[in-house]
Amino acid sequence: MKLKDIVENLSLDVLTNFEDKEVTGVYISDMLSDVMSNAQAGNLWVTIQTHKNIVAAANLIDISAVIVSQGTKVPDETIELANRYNVVILNTNDSTFTLSGKLYQLGIK
């Protein structure tokens, strides 16, 4: 599934430059070491972490996009860094749990 379709269907806020990518699944975690060892390339990464370290992690393992849930505000320095490394960061007011249900309904297994 294309990232663009997910953004449109779930009305996600795009905080960075947008680049459409193929989404291959979802990985949820708020612990960077966990994401780096277990998420797959192309995964959407759902988290409430907003520290700029998330950009490095997302970039290292080729995450298709980071979705920051729970309406958590993302600091400017994180967004700047994400733009530099072409990491897409999205924002939603849904909780991680609620968002999971919606992503599944869209057909992301």
Partner: peptide, 12 residues
């Protein structure tokens, strides 16, 4: 289950 799978199962 991982977090996504667990959330999805419970969401249904």
């Amino acid at each position: 289950s991982d977090m996504y799978e667990a959330c999805v199962k419970l969401a249904t």
